[in-house]
Design a protein around this nucleic acid. Sequence first.
DNA 1: ATCTTTTTTGTTATCGGTAACACATCGAAT
DNA 2: ATTCGATGTGTTACCGATAACAAAAAAGAT
Lengths: 317, 317
Amino acid sequence: MVTLNDVAKKANVSKMTVSRVINHPEQVTDELKELVYEAMSELNYRPNAAAIALAHNRTQIIKLLILEEMTVTEPYYMFLLTGIANELDKYSYSLQLLTHKNIQIGDSDGYIVCGMRSKDEELVKSLKKPVVLFGENDFGLDFVDSDNVKSMAKATEYALEKDYDHIVYLGIDVNEPFAQSREKGYTETMDKYGKEKHIYRLENRSRYSAAFIRDHWDSFSKNTLFLCASDRLAMGVIREIKERGGNIPEEYGVIGHDGVFLDQIAYPQLTTVKQAIDEMGAACARMVLDKVKAGGKSQGNQLFETDIKIGGTTRNN
Amino acid sequence: MVTLNDVAKKANVSKMTVSRVINHPEQVTDELKELVYEAMSELNYRPNAAAIALAHNRTQIIKLLILEEMTVTEPYYMFLLTGIANELDKYSYSLQLLTHKNIQIGDSDGYIVCGMRSKDEELVKSLKKPVVLFGENDFGLDFVDSDNVKSMAKATEYALEKDYDHIVYLGIDVNEPFAQSREKGYTETMDKYGKEKHIYRLENRSRYSAAFIRDHWDSFSKNTLFLCASDRLAMGVIREIKERGGNIPEEYGVIGHDGVFLDQIAYPQLTTVKQAIDEMGAACARMVLDKVKAGGKSQGNQLFETDIKIGGTTRNN
DNA sequence: ATCTTTTTTGTTATCGGTAACACATCGAAT
DNA sequence: ATTCGATGTGTTACCGATAACAAAAAAGAT
């Protein structure tokens, strides 16, 4: 293992100078900096996370709390995870994973929390280190999320462009900000164009959206598009439209939301709103590290834009 | 933060004695041990992982290498990950995540490797620390996996019990041990009962299995069961059988393999072979830690049994 | 009772970094 | 020329644990 000392010897300086080159480069002359950089890259120096942690009375660990039941969600957590992990790695930080089944809150320098619902407020607020949420919230906690309002507004506009007469919104039946924001994006856009709104809220499972389509089938005239708050809901809608002999995308359109995995399994491939999940993961990581560095000072929010990913469930005119 | 020193003072001993109580309790008299235990629990002492790591020239980090493209796979990695993470946590170890896009092989004490294919042999064998694979392999590397042969044998037996006349096996078209083992489970069982085998191998995507059903539809008499090497293949089969107007489960049966996520999305819910993925994750973690402790000595293999999870795609007689 | 040997406990140095302080060096101000 | 402050670099101590050694205490041998 290459240490600061090895680099220092090679560059003919003290190890403190090397440390400074890394942490406070402005305090070192360009000449020495050059020498040190050279030595570092020649020896392929990697800082020892344990030593840094010990010197700083830190752990170099960020814990990721997943409060949601993983089987109920889109499997996008892997992308979030890799986004976080890669970013943390750059700063010699490691990630530890906690699930609602296993909340052993040992030591860490900070937390990233996913899938938080109102009932988790107490738990999250009891954490004694900086916290960043993945997902909008009303509790004044710093967060990173997609811009859910804009996202659904975009999707609604797209649906209108494609000349579907009726646009029915299928939301997720939870009283949480992300769900409200998505609904708001739909509502605002429909109002803007003076279109009639149709909003239904369902539990986020394909069988319920399928059942919904079955139960209301007669009330949907042709040329209707179903704008779904998740790909999972969209899956059920597609399944049941096909079951009823409806034609996709000519008679009925479907748009989902998330664009992680299910949209590829669907047939026809789902038109969906794709989130930049790995980037958001990286953003969570950066934000929590910044917050650690700033002694826990709030870092505000960060919203990411989404993109429509066009599949075969919307018509192509 | 409570340190060894704090405990030592409280118990009126040197910190070395405390360290010994933790690591080599047989070297300390019962009397002192008692005192130390008491002090530890009163102060709620937790060892500092960074300090341990530094003193041992270790990192207390295990890296997880995911060599597969994550979008192509069942999203079971989350379960594997939590299994691994929870187990590592018990020993003050953290997990770091590496993907094929981001193989920064920094420092760690060992590796768990997933989704390894033959082409990765060189990479994996070049790792300088103990390695454990998740997944069978022919390279003599230690691994943890489901007992794929037994798993498919069980599924085949189940299909025969349910009185399907023809059992068609849809395998995954890769030349890897796990695929061969699953096929072997089918083959051996069919031979045992003197049944005629039908084996096809496809790329692991639902559209290919759907296309396969379409192309061969006329050759499948009723009362056929499709035994699929993955839930993803099974999804395509179900979709296309429904498209052709075939009745599931009476005329056609479908069994998948994995039982992580897709089986719940399918309609009817898929009969599948469920793997105990979180347990296997924990086993991977234990194995790699044992291997670290043993200085890299091989730890052999560990196979896990699977369970049939009955859904609506097989008949219920 | 004295000298070994063994067992038990304490001391010191060390792992790889960083903060705080000490010490040069240098130009500007008096 | 002397003093001063600013700037750049090196020294020392320390973060929390452990290994290796040293010392003290207890047990056994003569």
